[in-house]
Computed example of a mutant assay.
Amino acid sequence: MAMVCSDTPITRTAPAVPTPGDMASRAAGHLAAKLNGFARAMADHRRRRRDAAVLAALPFDLRKDLGWPADDMRR
């Protein structure tokens, strides 16, 4: 039978417990990221609607040349 010995001490440390300030900071960062994403999505939606309105306002012949569908052909 063999016996193994080690002279190095084993240190065990508990994981750091987040403080309320750390948790609030992390929650605020998460909320800010969500709000930025929502604002970006709203801006993209508004830009797409504005572009569609501009294309719809073009004369029929020009829309036809671009391949834009005519409103009276959807029936």
Rank of each mutant, 00 (worst) to 15 (best):
H45T: 12
F60L: 13
D44W: 02
W68C: 02
R63S: 04
N36C: 00
G67F: 01
G37S: 05
F38A: 13
R50W: 11
G37K: 05
G67H: 01
R46L: 10
R63N: 02
M42Y: 01
W68T: 10
L66M: 10
R46K: 11
N36Q: 02
N36A: 13
H45P: 01
L66A: 05
G67Q: 03
D61T: 08
P59A: 04
R63G: 01
V54I: 15
A53S: 12
D72Y: 06
H45S: 13
W68P: 02
P59E: 08
A57T: 08
R49G: 10
W68R: 03
A53I: 08
L58G: 02
D51A: 14
P69C: 05
R50I: 07
R47L: 09
F38N: 05
D71C: 02
N36K: 07
A41N: 12
A41E: 13
N36V: 00
L55R: 15
K34W: 00
D51V: 11
R48T: 13
H45I: 06
D44N: 12
H45D: 12
L62W: 02
A57W: 04
A52N: 13
D44M: 06
D51G: 08
L66E: 02
K34S: 03
A52E: 13
K64F: 03
F60G: 05
L62T: 08
A56D: 14
A56C: 04
V54T: 14
A43C: 07
R47D: 12
F60A: 11
L58M: 15
D71L: 04
L66W: 02
D65S: 10
R48C: 10
F38L: 09
A70P: 01
A52M: 14
M42E: 14
A39M: 04
R46E: 14
K34N: 00
P69S: 08
R48H: 14
D51L: 14
D71P: 02
N36E: 08
R48E: 15
W68Q: 08
A52R: 15
L55I: 14
D44Q: 09
D44L: 06
A57M: 08
L55D: 07
D61N: 05
R40W: 00
D61S: 05
R49F: 09
P59I: 07
M42S: 09
D51I: 12
A43L: 13
P69H: 08
L55M: 15
D65R: 11
A41W: 02
M42P: 00
F38C: 02
V54N: 09
A56P: 01
M42R: 12
R40L: 09
A43W: 07
L62G: 01
L55P: 00
A52G: 10
A70N: 06
D65H: 09
R49Q: 13
A53K: 11
R46V: 07
L62P: 00
L62H: 05
A39R: 06
K64T: 08
A43E: 12
R47M: 11
A43S: 13
A53M: 13
D61M: 03
F38T: 03
H45L: 12
M42N: 10
